[in-house]
């Protein structure tokens, strides 16, 4: 094999593995979310299929496969079919630039646990998150139903408003690392977790990220695009069977991406909180640290859903533009001033 073919093979393999892992995490996540949410509400949740109900995702998958695929009469067929695909593609594109662990040595080669270490990694994430809205807007518009259209419009307005704060919450971390490359930002947080993690050095930035990211993935308390009391189920009202599953999958993959990006930018990525814990028995366990931190982030999302009620629409808009955006701007100014005067 020529070197180009080898590179191509490795890249393809990595893409397949990462997409596979995220798909597996998605099905696991549906189970964990339903169980945890049930426990928080003093219920049991799904516990019938398999031991502790662990096979519930499999049963759900089979059910969704065999359900009838409904196409609404007045729907725009082309857009209706393309929208879930668009949503899932943009969701999976974003996982490419996150570094999941240290470089591993396999088949006599050094393989970084990252699909693409882009020079503009953070900006790439921003670009992809700005494209993410199209899947939802298209789904809402194509079904030709007033509830879906309103859900789609709402979500585009919401994502558009919070995207700005989301992008600006990263700028502090970028300034501190002096690079858009995500692996550089991870490396800039090496050492003891206090005070090196951006979670401490960039506390306002992290707060803004937390709120904006929750709004960006349409999770409670920002799940207005699918507020069932007013909009039936929002943009995915008319979807059934596998297309519904794809939209759902996109939402969960987005949530996992948000947790992974938060881990990388604010919690030191795959680096151990204490330098001595990076290697156990001479092996680098960075991947485990990453999964642990990401898992904590995902748990937080579920916890939030079990705790906080939904916002009202005008509250959401006011908060995004009048509180979050100024806070993000002040954080950038403060960080920049600190860098300028401390050097």
């Amino acid at each position: 094999m020529t070197p180009v073919q080898q590179e191509l093979l490795i890249a393809t393999g990595k893409v397949l593995v990462f997409v596979g892992v995220f798909l597996g995490l998605f099905s696991g996540m549906t189970y964990v979310e339903r169980r945890l949410l049930a426990f928080m509400q003093f219920r049991l949740g799904p516990n019938r299929v398999g031991p502790f109900g662990l096979l519930q995702p499999v049963a759900d998958g089979i059910k969704l496969f065999f359900k009838e695929e409904v196409m609404p009469e007045g729907a725009n067929k082309w857009a209706f079919m393309a929208a879930p695909a668009l949503a899932i593609v943009t969701a999976f594109l974003a996982i490419a630039v996150v570094p999941y662990g240290p470089t591993v040595h396999l088949f006599n080669r050094d393989i970084p646990l990252q699909i693409a270490d882009l020079d503009v990694g953070v900006l790439f994430l921003f670009a992809i998150s700005s494209l993410g809205v199209y899947g939802i807007v298209m789904a809402g518009w194509a079904a030709n139903n007033k509830y879906t259209l309103l859900g789609g419009l709402r979500s585009s307005a919401q994502m558009f408003s919070y995207e700005l704060s989301l992008g600006m919450s990263w700028v502090g971390a970028i300034i501190l690392a002096g690079s858009f490359r995500i692996s550089d930002i991870v490396a800039s947080q090496a050492g003891w977790f206090i005070p090196n993690w951006n979670f401490f050095r960039q506390a306002p930035g992290f707060l803004v990220y937390l709120v904006a990211a929750t709004a960006e993935v349409n999770r409670t308390p920002f799940d207005l695009p699918e507020a069932e009391t007013e909009l039936v189920a929002g943009f995915h009202t008319e979807y059934s069977s596998m297309r519904f599953a794809l939209l759902q999958m996109a939402e969960y993959v987005n949530m996992m991406t948000v947790a992974a990006v938060g881990t990388s930018l604010f919690f030191g990525g795959w680096l151990a909180p204490v330098p001595g814990l990076q290697h156990v028995f001479g092996r680098d366990i960075g991947l485990l640290w990453f999964l642990l931190k990401m898992g904590a982030g995902l748990f937080f999302f579920i916890w939030l859903r079990g705790t906080v009620p939904r916002f009202r629409y005008d509250q959401l808009m006011n908060f995004g533009w009048k509180v979050l955006l100024p806070l993000a701007t002040l954080n950038i100014l403060g960080t920049a001033a600190w860098i300028a005067f401390s050097k």
């Binding site: 503009v120 900006l123 700005s130 199209y134 789609g152």
Partner: peptide, 26 residues
């Protein structure tokens, strides 16, 4: 030029076109 590539998506495909679509749908 990855920088220009990303800006193209962020500014035009991500921001301006969303507004276009928003108006068309509204």
């Amino acid at each position: 030029s990855p920088f220009i590539a990303v800006l193209q998506v962020v500014v035009y495909a991500g921001a301006i076109m969303v507004l276009f679509l928003f108006v068309l749908m509204l």
